[in-house]
Design a binder for these strands. Sequence first.
DNA 1: TTGTTTGTATTAAGCACTTAATACAATAAT
DNA 2: ATTATTGTATTAAGTGCTTAATACAAACAA
Lengths: 124, 124
Amino acid sequence: MEWKIDDRYPIWSQLSEQLAAFITGGQFEAGQRLPSVREFAADAGVNPNTMQRAMAELESLGLVVTNRTAGRAVTEDRDRIDQIRRTQVKKEVDIFLERMEALGFTRDEIMGVLREAITEEEDG
Amino acid sequence: MEWKIDDRYPIWSQLSEQLAAFITGGQFEAGQRLPSVREFAADAGVNPNTMQRAMAELESLGLVVTNRTAGRAVTEDRDRIDQIRRTQVKKEVDIFLERMEALGFTRDEIMGVLREAITEEEDG
DNA sequence: TTGTTTGTATTAAGCACTTAATACAATAAT
DNA sequence: ATTATTGTATTAAGTGCTTAATACAAACAA
């Protein structure tokens, strides 16, 4: 998978967020076996310890379960996945609105800007 | 002013971004004298060194000018302010679209979610 | 002239994050 | 039975961020 890592922000936290989005976004299915910590770490280009911490975070969120020596898998609890997904969406939307308003945009203007951005990317 | 500080991310960088948004969003006008580093630091509840670094960042961006012992002020260069504002907007929109797509939303769905969020906040 | 305010610089300490290098027990695979 | 893989833990080192405590020169205010 593609990782986007910004080093002015804890990497384990970014890994956790991106993996969480991958799971709740449906790119990993419920119950699906995940690559090992070492594989994931190599893929992301980070230390296994860092990836381990990200996985522990996902586990404490209830998105992932650990089967000791048989690796990890996405939880079977689809309700939990949906619940976290809603939380993620709300967070992203709230942050976006907040920041756009700080830049001086009204709600209506924000809609307009977003519509422009989308149609531009579709054309270009 | 109101500061939103998240301690899992460099504070000087957050201060810089929020001040930049305040300036380009028009809450500080072009040419307007700014509070001193010490005042700003006390207001934000951070160390003066941390605020100093944020101000240096704004200066290197060309948003702020320093008059040695007479404090700092917003630049008179309105073109520069507009230019940075456009950069900020594009960044926020791009990040938002990227993250929402990672959560499995199509472009149309993103517009819908945003519209819902806005009307909900207006009602409640 | 004296005291205050300005930006700026320095040093030291503490803290979290990251990496590297290992190591271990439990289980799966052969 | 042996080997490989799994999650997990530990220790040490380096780095950047933050704070505290100062200090200085320049300019303004009294």
